[in-house]
Nucleic acid binder design. Structure first.
Lengths: 197, 197
DNA sequence: AAACATACCTACTGGTTGGTATGTTCAAGA
DNA sequence: TCTTGAACATACCAACCAGTAGGTATGTTT
C-alpha cells in the first residue's frame, strides 16, 4: 500500500506544485486545468482522478500552502522577547521564503470574490489562521504588556500585514535594500509612525 | 449633430457604468461582455460598436474613473494646512465616495496581472496619477517642513494607501465606527505608530 | 427627398475550457 | 501467475464567450 500511495502522492504533489505556480501568477479564471496538467506533466484525466473539479484543486492547493505557513509563523507566536522582537521574527520568516511562496500570501485577498459560501469561508479562515492570527496574538500580547497602545488587535494586525505586503511587493522588484532593512522599515513605521517625534 | 452625439454618449455612459459595476465586483475574466450589455440595456452589437474589444472597454472604464478621482484628490494637494490636515482631507474624500466608486480603488492592484505592455503601463500610470501621486506630494511636503521624518516619500505614500485600504475594507462591512473615526485611526497610526510613546 | 452616416440589432462562428466516458497500465495480494 | 482495483491516458462533448457579418433604424446633410 505504501508504494501505491507513494506514487499517487507524488502525482498529487506535482499537481499541487504546478497549481501553486499558475494560480500565484494569474487569476483563477485565466488558469486552465490543461495549463496545470501540462506543467505537472500529467494528463487531464489524472488531474480529474485526484481532484473533483477546478475549485477543489484550488482549495487543496491553497489549504496546503496556508497550513505550511501557519506552522512556520507559529514560531514567532511561541518565541520569547518583546512584541517588537516577535514581530521582527515573524516578518523575517516572510522575507526568507522563496518568491513563489511569498507571492501566494496575497492570493486570498486577490481571489476572495471568486468563491461563495462554505468554500470562501474555509479559505478565509485558513488564511487568518496562517498569518493574521499569529500577528494578532503578538500584538495583543504587546497591548497587554503596554508596549502597544490599547486598541483593536485584529485591525492592527491587518494593518501591519498591509504594511508588510507593500514592502514585500517593492522588495520583489528589487527597488529596495536587503531584507533586513525592509523588516526594520516596517517595524519602525508600525510602532513609531512616520511623523517626527 | 449634437442630438446624435448625445444619444451615443448616453449609451456609452450606460455601458461604462455597467462595466464599473461588474468589473468592480468580479474578476476581469469572470465578467462577460454579455453581462455588461445586459446591465447597460443594450445589445452586444451596440457594445462592440462603441468599444473595439473587451480590453478597450476595461481601459475606458477605468481611465474615466481614475481621471475623476485624480481631479477630486487634487483638492487635497492644493489645500492649505499641515501635512496631517491635508492627508485628513484626502482620506475623507475617499470615505465620502459611494461604495461602488470606492471599490474601484483596489481594481488596479487586483487586476494588475491581466494586461501586459502598454495597456498595463497606461493603467498603472492612471492609478498613480489619481491617488499615490497626490499622497506622495502631500507627504513630500511634510518631509520638507519637518512634519514627517526623512525617507522615501513614494514608499510612504504606498504604505499610507495600504493602511487606508484596510480600514476601507472593514468600513464597507460595517464592522467599524463612522468615517470620521476611521480617518482619525489611520492618521494616528501612520503619523504616531501603534506603539506607546 | 435623395444620399449618406451613425447607431444599433440579430444571428452566427471559431475557439477555448471544464468536465466526462472509456480504454489502458501498473502494482499488490492470493 | 492470475486477479483486481487503483492510477493513469486518450478522445471527446457540451457550454460558454469574444468577436463578426450583415441587416435595419434613426438621424443629418445637401
Amino acid at each position: 500500500m505504501a508504494t501505491t500511495q507513494t506514487r499517487a502522492e507524488a502525482t498529487i504533489n506535482d499537481i499541487l506544485n504546478a497549481a501553486e505556480i499558475h494560480f500565484g501568477q494569474r487569476n483563477y479564471a485565466d488558469v486552465s486545468m490543461s495549463d496545470i496538467a501540462y506543467l505537472a506533466d500529467v494528463t487531464k484525466g489524472a488531474l480529474y482522478h485526484h481532484f473533483k473539479n477546478k475549485e477543489a484543486l484550488y482549495v487543496a492547493m491553497l489549504t496546503r500552502d496556508l497550513e505550511e505557513k501557519r506552522i512556520i509563523f507559529q514560531q514567532a507566536v511561541d518565541a520569547p522577547g518583546t512584541c517588537r522582537d516577535r514581530l521582527e521574527l515573524s516578518t523575517k520568516l516572510l522575507f526568507q521564503m522563496p518568491e513563489a511562496k511569498r507571492r501566494l500570501i496575497r492570493l486570498v485577498r486577490r481571489d476572495i470574490n471568486i468563491f461563495k459560501g462554505k468554500t470562501r469561508a474555509l479559505l478565509v479562515k485558513a488564511y487568518q489562521d496562517a498569518l493574521p492570527q499569529s500577528v494578532q496574538a503578538i500584538i495583543q500580547a504587546g497591548i497587554d504588556t503596554g508596549e502597544i497602545a490599547p486598541g483593536d488587535a485584529r485591525l492592527l494586525a491587518w494593518e501591519y500585514i498591509a504594511l508588510v505586503e507593500v514592502v514585500l511587493t517593492d522588495y520583489a522588484q528589487d527597488t529596495l535594500g536587503g531584507p533586513e532593512q525592509c523588516v526594520q522599515f516596517v517595524l519602525n513605521l508600525f510602532l513609531n509612525g512616520a511623523g517626527t517625534q
